[in-house]
Design a protein around this nucleic acid. Structure first.
Lengths: 166, 166
DNA sequence: CGTAGATTTCAGAAAATTGTGAAATCTTAG
DNA sequence: CTAAGATTTCACAATTTTCTGAAATCTACG
């Protein structure tokens, strides 16, 4: 397989993976493109490589910066902005965990708390309370586990943790 | 909050959560509905509760059965099929991990293997190979970690594992 | 300032996903 | 076997998500 074929396949696969994780295809592809680029790229280069419009590129680059997966890089003497991706996989994963935890797990915990206030004596009410309680228990545990994980450094993760459970 | 308000809010939140995880809203809502239902429900009851068509209900119920999250229950003397959800949260999570691992992580590992065959001496080629290698390393580790996790039983998880890392 | 180059915004277009409902198919009691 | 009831399928409709491109805004140099 040539480098170009490989790049193409990687962009395609990473984009598809993104889709099935609620991240839009283009955002995932921009991320993939920056990951495998040894140099920072400008918006124009990204637009050209992925054949997308300026608006689309801009929005998704901003989103990636929001997630903390991509950084702006200003080259001296250049008016344009260049972009570079976090390359350390463990940092990438920590970023994603942190963000999704904040955006999804924490709001869910809040909702579950509200739902705990439902008190109904019927069979339906009991079943409801039971499910909410279980989900809340599980989610809180997941929450603190993820906190620990994202505070751990890569070496600890690949070393201690992996050895321990395997 | 009344039971009905609570149920409504739960169906809504669980559906929204599904969307941001690449699972369609209706599928997640059917799952939520069955989770909080003390009795098995028929397709007609699900259609009525969620205000969806027969076709939609049927397709998403089948999908949930595929995932192993919902089971058919045949009531003696009844011609209809009834459906019931797996209620144990740890089982639910194991199911989801197992399926997504099979559907996404494993195919990705296969692609990464193919991409490892790219050998290119250029700076771009080196960067590409490096990224692929890192992702592959991380993914294989995730793969075996998830294997261990899904084989572990709930008690081990909530007990040993949680104590260990906290 | 003025302006050229760069970035951002956003209304509407395009694409992708999901839902509908009626016809086809299957199932089983009689 | 037959027919009523149940399930499945799938072409098309509706909805949601994403993308485009041009206008608006920003930025920094002379």
């Amino acid at each position: 397989m040539t480098l170009d074929e490989g790049k193409q396949k990687f962009l395609q696969s990473w984009g598809a993976l993104g889709s099935s994780w609620g991240i839009n295809r283009t955002m995932a592809q921009i991320h993939a493109l920056l990951l495998i680029s040894p140099e920072a790229l400008s918006a124009d280069e990204i637009m050209a490589d992925l054949q997308i419009s300026r608006g689309n590129a801009n929005m998704n680059i901003r989103a990636l910066i929001d997630w903390g997966l991509v950084f702006k890089e200003l080259k001296p003497g250049e008016r344009k902005e260049f972009f570079i991706a976090e390359k350390d996989m463990w940092e990438v994963v920590k970023c994603i965990i942190t963000q999704r935890k904040k955006r999804e797990l924490e709001p869910m915990l809040k909702v579950l708390d509200e739902l705990s206030s439902v008190a109904d004596e019927s069979k339906e009410g009991e079943a409801f309370a039971e499910v909410i309680k279980d989900i809340k228990l599980f989610s809180s545990k997941a929450d603190s586990t993820l906190d620990t994980l994202t505070k751990a450094d890569s070496n600890w993760f690949v070393g201690t943790f992996m050895k321990m459970i395997r």
